[in-house]
């Protein structure tokens, strides 16, 4: 199967390498900027274009991997569906719920497979937590806390910093935990959220939400793009018989590298290597689905629900009121 990468930034590079290590061929790269497309295309001897729609329409292409900024996802997904391609789309599925629905119905109509890459469902530590939960280790869960974040990403043309484009930390990053929350604890009843969404004098977003699940479970979800550096994930699941905690600060490897002899500023990097990257695992599952051998653990409907929940959180932050789901 031959893959086209649309959007050749951070995720475009990552997904090209994941698809390649699954044995797929990257044959075309599309980006708003020809140069960005070229830089990636050269690594795979692929074609580069600044006309992403033309790349999608290319009859040689079987799979379209959408890795462009969030507001562009739905348009490319619909075009890819209409061209009969299998679709691998980065999360968030789209910028609005309507866009999610339009993309879903285009895929349904064209009978193509549309996969939304909610990668946290493939993270080993999150799978391990689900296994412990399923084994009854915490008993009946009642309280969940999910924390994720670090510095405010920039992105091409600083698109992450435009709240209209990216939806800030709530839509872009908290959505990982929102999806996992729903995956693991079912649907939510309502949400209350506070979100900083500052641009001046510094881009700082800090979002804290309480989701009340239909089961009664109370979930505190915190997303931060407020740190000057670093990235951490922290989770806690409390039940009537126990508790599970995870903290990404606790890693097997911790390196400190001197920038130059005698110089003080150094880069400090924690690392936690795994046998297979979760991004690779999601590609494997997507490919198995395209080949008709397996159902993926995340559906486009799940991804739409995640967008709906994240946007409800933002609505609550805007109005100061809880929002019913």
């Amino acid at each position: 199967m031959r893959v086209a990468i649309i959007g050749c930034g951070t995720m475009g590079h990552l997904h090209a390498s994941m698809a390649a290590s699954c044995g797929l061929r990257i044959i075309a790269c599309g980006d708003k900027y020809k140069h960005s497309a070229k830089v990636l295309a050269e690594q795979y001897s692929a074609a580069a274009s600044d006309d992403s729609m033309a790349v999608i329409a290319d009859p040689e292409v079987d799979i379209v991997a959408i890795c462009s900024p969030t507001p562009t996802h739905a348009g490319y997904a619909i075009a890819a569906a209409e061209a009969g391609k299998s679709i691998f789309c980065e999360k968030p599925f789209a910028r609005t719920v309507q866009q999610c629905r339009d993309a879903m119905s285009a895929a349904r109509k064209a009978k193509v497979k549309l996969f939304v890459a909610h990668v946290v469902r493939y993270f080993q530590e999150f799978e391990a937590m689900r296994a412990q939960l399923a084994a009854g280790k915490v008993g009946k869960p009642g309280f969940v806390k999910l924390y994720r974040g670090g510095l405010f990403p920039m992105g091409a043309d600083g698109w992450f910093r435009d709240y209209e484009e990216s939806g800030g930390v709530t839509l872009d990053s908290m959505i990982h935990d929102i999806d996992w929350l729903r995956y693991t604890f079912g649907d939510a009843e309502r949400v209350f959220c506070q979100a900083l969404r500052r641009s001046e004098p510094e881009a700082i977003d800090y979002s804290t939400a309480t989701f009340r699940m239909k089961s009664g479970v109370i979930a505190k979800v915190i997303g931060t793009w407020a740190q000057p550096g670093g990235f951490r994930v922290e989770t806690e699941i409390c039940g009537d018989k126990g508790m599970i905690q995870f903290n990404s600060d606790e890693t097997p490897i911790f390196t400190m590298k001197r920038t130059a002899p005698g110089e003080t500023p150094s880069t400090i990097v924690p690392a936690s290597p795994v046998p297979k990257s979760p991004y690779q695992l999601e590609w494997e599952e997507f490919i198995a689905w395209v080949r008709g051998t397996r159902q993926p653990r995340v559906t486009a409907r799940d991804a739409t629900e995640a967008v709906r929940m994240a946007l409800a959180a933002l609505e609550s932050a805007e109005t100061g009121k809880p929002v019913k789901l």
Binding site: G142, F143, F192, Q194, T210, I218, K220, G239, D240
Partner: peptide
């Protein structure tokens, strides 16, 4: 605030509060 009695059995108070 969202609060509830979700963790400890046989009590008549909340045992979790998530406040903003």
């Amino acid at each position: 605030s969202e609060n509830g009695n979700l963790l400890r059995h046989g009590i008549d108070t909340d045992d979790v509060g998530s406040l903003h």
